[in-house]
Simulated scan of single mutants.
Amino acid sequence: MEKRPQQATPAVWITIISILAVISAIWWWVQRPAYIAIQQRETSVNDKILLTLAGGQTIDLTDTSYHITQTPDAVVYSSPSGVTYSPKSIGVTSWNTLYVPEGRKYTLIMADGTQIFLNSKTTLRFKFVTAGRKKQLFVDGEAYFRLLPNDTSVLTVHTPVTDIITANADFDVITYDREHVKTILVRGSLQVTDQRTTVTLKPGTAAIYNADDDFTTAPVDLKEVLNWTEKIKSGTELREKISTLIQEN
């Protein structure tokens, strides 16, 4: 009588499965990607005014004395209240990032004289462009822009949800509330768009982006709006200080 092959008992199957599980675990352990610890930034860094250049170099602008820094793209002139630069070439295309922490205010003066006052907890991305060139900036926080009255080059300011386009204007941008980003025109004219709707502002009015609706416009008290800029040194004063710095060097 022919014997039938003996079937594996449940105990045998459990043993086989256990061996396969061990082999799989060993294979995963050998093949796993190496863990690389990410170096954490010190908490104190978050309290500093920092200019991070396109190549990764970081310049600490916090409470600095008047100083000249040579970079690949520009000569940077910094002071306790603001910073400006002199481009080394026309075709600069790299982005720099200026960060102002909570409780601080700072000023950037572009090569064409455009003044940008940065309020607390604000990040600005910009290029070392020469005068007369089209300017593009990215701002997140609050910034007040003061363009030269006779400026003809177009400035485009990108916020997280809107774009502001102007050639000669003074205006304030507030993006702390991403669902209600506000643009306030003080002088001149500008357009603000969210790619769905475009609004043209008149001085003394604000355009408020609404995440779930169209823009709303309303008159504003400019004195109240610009109250935070009163203690910031004017661009004229800053340029005079920097001019003295250049002459001394």
Rank of each mutant, 00 (worst) to 15 (best):
L147W: 05
V30L: 13
T200H: 15
N249I: 01
K88T: 14
P5A: 10
S65M: 04
L190C: 06
K202N: 04
Q31M: 07
G132F: 07
Q191N: 14
T236G: 11
P72L: 12
T162N: 14
I19W: 05
T15P: 05
L61D: 02
T198H: 04
I184G: 00
I174T: 11
W28T: 11
Y106I: 08
T162Q: 13
N210T: 07
T62K: 13
T236R: 11
D214V: 03
L148W: 02
Q191C: 01
T159R: 13
Y35P: 02
P5Y: 10
T193Y: 00
Q136R: 12
V129G: 09
T97W: 11
G204P: 03
S44L: 11
K233H: 15
K202I: 05
V45N: 07
I246V: 12
R196Q: 12
V100I: 15
A8T: 04
V83E: 05
P87T: 14
Q191E: 14
K182G: 04
L51Q: 08
I208R: 01
W29A: 13
A54N: 15
A21Y: 02
P33T: 06
T43M: 13
W13M: 05
I19G: 06
V225G: 00
A207N: 10
V157A: 06
A211R: 15
I242T: 13
Y209M: 14
K127L: 02
I17W: 03
I49Q: 04
L148H: 03
I208M: 10
I59A: 10
I17M: 14
I16W: 07
K48D: 01
S24G: 15
D194P: 08
W95C: 00
E230H: 14
K105S: 10
K127P: 07
T64P: 10
F128M: 07
K182R: 15
T71D: 11
L245M: 03
E102M: 06
W13Q: 09
D151S: 09
T114A: 05
A21V: 13
I17K: 12
Y85P: 14
T62Y: 05
L118R: 05
A37Q: 15
H180D: 09
D177C: 08
Y66G: 10
A74S: 15
V100N: 05
R178H: 14
I164G: 04
T62A: 07
F215V: 00
L190S: 06
G103T: 01
Y66I: 03
T159A: 04
L20A: 11
R4W: 11
N150H: 03
Y99Q: 09
L137Y: 05
S189N: 13
V139F: 04
S234P: 02
V100P: 02
T200K: 15
Q115M: 06
I90G: 04
